[in-house]
């Protein structure tokens, strides 16, 4: 069973975090989190992980593109 409590599962919490819940379900999950500080802490931990992941490899994005890759897409047939 994928149920942690009668009402909210881990996947629900992820959907909440990722903004994939309907408005009515979001209200239910928020009410659940208000009653369950432990789950609220889980959500916060996931949220902070998500923020770190967003920045992962940003230094690679800033690197100049190697010439051999640029040449590939810049030459037209």
């Amino acid at each position: 069973m994928n149920r942690s409590s009668p009402e909210v599962t881990t996947l629900d919490l992820q959907d909440y975090l990722d903004g994939r819940l309907s408005a009515s379900r979001r209200v239910e999950v928020e009410a659940f989190l208000a009653r369950n500080p432990q789950s609220a802490a889980e959500v916060e931990a996931l949220r902070s992980q998500a923020m770190v992941l967003r920045r992962l490899g940003s230094d690679i994005l800033d690197e100049p593109i190697p010439d051999q890759l640029l040449d590939l897409v810049r030459q037209l047939p």
Binding site: R3, T9, L13, Q38
Partner: peptide, 10 residues
């Protein structure tokens, strides 16, 4: 799964 009884990982 998350549950009230499961050990919390801070």
């Amino acid at each position: 799964m998350l549950s009230k009884g499961s050990p919390r990982v801070p």
